[in-house]
Nucleic acid binder design. Structure first.
Lengths: 211, 211
DNA sequence: ATATGTGAACATTTTCACAGCT
DNA sequence: AGCTGTGAAAATGTTCACATAT
């Protein structure tokens, strides 16, 4: 039960969970791998394989209990606890992120917001006051912040990342369009919107349009 | 020269291009696969393999000509032309996207913006006036819009996607946290911020922290 | 001399197919 | 009977190693 789990598997698990929670809300009590696969745009075998990496959660001849499987997935994904997240950069992207009530719903509490720009400071964002980025280390350390969302210009991203990591952050979600270097043991995820559009452009350019 | 190209390969090509353009700006004229690999956090063999899927762009014993390879990659990725993009949803996420001057820089012109909310309409966003979403089909058709960025609530996403596709859109970049269905031949990319944080949470939860 | 381009080896991921529970 | 869980097979992706071109 301790293989190395691929990125794509984690994304699928995340998706299964979202689907299961919607079904749960609709009162569906049981689901088969076939049905779940359809909704997640994958195959039944893939669903079963993904889940089997972590245990046996279904009943043969019957399928999976929806609330039970959802709970298992939450535990697997580390969503059965709350995470303290800091947001660095209170510009447009940063403020768009604050809108997402999907974050607190999922256990991610944005407990601190930072910006270099004085004019943005002081305002309160869903409970967090925008602070001077000088206080990053202090706050990350004191509030035991595990993850940092970087919504700063590319030129500042590496420096902020280094400081966050030095202060104890273990995960970084990077919106700046630069390739960050982080030490071993720190997780990094990039969201690059231009790259997504480029991937679309490539798909539309190819003669064999497929996905 | 017409294999099926994987998603990850496209992402790497996109990254190579960004690196090459920075080098180009710094006046670097030549680069080796080793050097490019280092900057892209991959291996030299991977770089050469990726490029070899599309042709032979280097000189043995020498490396790659930076501007020439950049031009090749732009052509491969379909960035040697301009794309007409519509944005549906002028809320926080939508407005954050408009900030990105990375879009026009890369050939993506946001030529139309739509919203259901009357209060948001009429304002001009970098040349595009926010219009009633009722006009989506008409405008997508008339302005030959190829891609649509969906920054609408999940409940509206599928309907808007269907309408955009019916009007001729071939690519969709979806920010709504729902699994969209699109017909064969239409490309779909999802950006799901919660999922990214979940992947981070999973990585931090695992005993073997690796990336 | 040096660094590309590429077949072959290796590793990983996905699919198949069926034994084994319920 | 029906659907999961899982080894084995197939497909796909990555790394190696070296012949080949400059």
């Amino acid at each position: 039960m301790s293989r190395r789990i691929s990125e794509t598997t984690v994304r699928r698990l995340s998706l299964y969970l979202r689907i299961l929670e919607r079904m749960e809300g609709q009162g569906t009590s049981t689901v088969g791998s076939e049905d779940l696969a359809d909704r997640a745009a994958t195959t039944a075998a893939q669903v079963r394989k993904d889940l089997s990496l972590f245990g046996s959660f279904g009943k043969r001849g019957l399928g999976y209990d929806v609330p039970k499987l959802a709970a298992e997935l939450r535990e697997i994904l580390g969503l059965d606890r709350r995470w303290s997240v800091a947001l660095v950069g209170a510009g447009r992207i940063g403020s768009a992120l604050m809108e997402y009530d999907g974050f607190p719903d999922r256990g991610f509490d944005i407990v601190a917001v930072f910006d270099v720009d004085e004019s943005r400071r002081g305002s309160r964002w869903s409970g967090a006051t925008v602070m001077d980025v000088d206080r990053l280390e202090e706050v990350v350390r004191d509030r035991n912040i595990q993850m940092v969302i970087l919504a700063v210009p590319g030129s500042a991203a590496q420096e902020v990342a280094d400081r966050a990591v030095a202060a104890g952050a273990q995960g970084i979600l990077n919106f700046a369009p630069v390739q960050l270097r982080v030490p071993e043991g720190v997780s990094l995820k990039d969201v690059n919107l231009v790259m997504e559009l480029e991937a679309l452009a490539f798909a539309l350019t190819q003669p064999d349009v497929e996905e």
